[in-house]
């Protein structure tokens, strides 16, 4: 039963991963195919590249911000909805709804909302705030630490992108946590209450530890979205001034299909694959172990 699908996946997934890996070691950088092997020089060039260094910084900052904020907001919403408030279904749907949109739609909407001259800044100005934020057009980086070619730190512009991504995915985090909360038996809560735990202590000492498997899955899912993100950035900001909102996915697309630099594009793809593997492989290993037990 499994063999046909194994063959197809073998060709269309692993076969092409292998091909991409091979191309990343060649000198194929124009329309003219050039399969001369050049070793790791494509990778070496990438790591010296201003744009790629910026991409690495942006991905790191974006991932940390995106995962942390999404999980905190998701948990908060789940705890709120879980209190069996009236209209629970309504709120649940409202919070999950952004997930039904594609990142392209989200990107376009938030590009308008956070446009420094026409968006939310008009409201801020009406409220009398003179020094309005520049959102995704800001080229500020906090703090500016010279590192390699680039200045390391948190690019202010990436915050705007993270806001859009959090808006879209926090409903999903809520849904996951809600499922987890429903799985915690009432006996546990009762027992903790009998032992004199307050609401805050109950959440911290009982509920959050019980939700650990959910949190782990969430981190994996959100991390792989964040490390591979392309569509949101492409629709919302593009690479940005001085590449403050650029990510490897966008660089890969531009260098491959605009610059015809297939070897460099393949190298970026391989690095992205390795980054995602850092999260996925330990997860797979641990889940396999569980299955054996």
């Amino acid at each position: 039963m499994l063999i046909p699908s194994l063959v197809l996946i073998g060709i269309f997934v692993y076969g092409f991963i292998a091909w991409t890996g091979f191309v990343s070691f060649t000198a194929w950088k124009s329309m003219v195919k050039n399969m001369k092997l050049v070793g790791f020089s494509n990778y070496a060039l990438l790591f010296q590249d201003f744009r790629f260094q910026s991409d690495m910084r942006n991905t790191l900052m974006f991932t940390i911000m995106f995962i942390a904020v999404t999980m905190v907001i998701g948990l908060f919403l789940a705890l709120m909805v879980d209190r069996k408030v009236r209209g629970e279904t309504f709120f649940r749907n409202v919070f999950i709804f952004p997930m039904a949109l594609s990142f392209i739609v989200t990107g376009v909407i938030w590009q308008w909302i956070l446009n420094p001259t026409t968006g939310v800044n008009l409201i801020l100005k009406a409220l009398g705030i003179a020094d309005v934020p520049q959102w995704y057009t800001s080229t500020n980086i906090i703090p500016r630490i010279q590192l390699g070619q680039i200045e390391f730190g948190l690019p202010v512009a990436i915050i705007a992108v993270a806001i859009a991504a959090v808006w879209q995915m926090s409903g999903f985090a809520m849904a996951m946590y809600l499922a987890g909360l429903r799985g915690i038996s009432d006996d546990l809560r009762e027992a903790a209450k009998v032992d004199g735990a307050g609401e805050w202590k109950l959440i911290r000492k009982v509920i959050i530890p019980q939700l650990r498997p959910i949190s782990m899955s969430l981190i994996i899912i959100l991390a792989h979205i964040s490390l591979k993100i392309f569509d949101l950035i492409y629709a919302m900001t593009g690479p940005g001034a001085m590449f403050v909102t650029d990510v490897p996915g966008v660089y890969m697309f531009e260098t491959t299909f605009r610059g015809n630099n297939y070897a460099q594009g393949a190298s970026i793809s391989v690095i992205m694959l390795l980054m995602v593997s850092l999260f996925i492989v330990p997860y797979l290993v641990s889940s396999m172990r569980k299955e054996k037990m």
Binding site: K29, S30, T255, R258
Partner: peptide, 19 residues
Amino acid sequence: AIEGFATQANQIINIFVTQ
């Protein structure tokens, strides 16, 4: 110029506009 150069020139100009 060849697309590879044009793409890189775009990147250089993009950095230059800010820096």
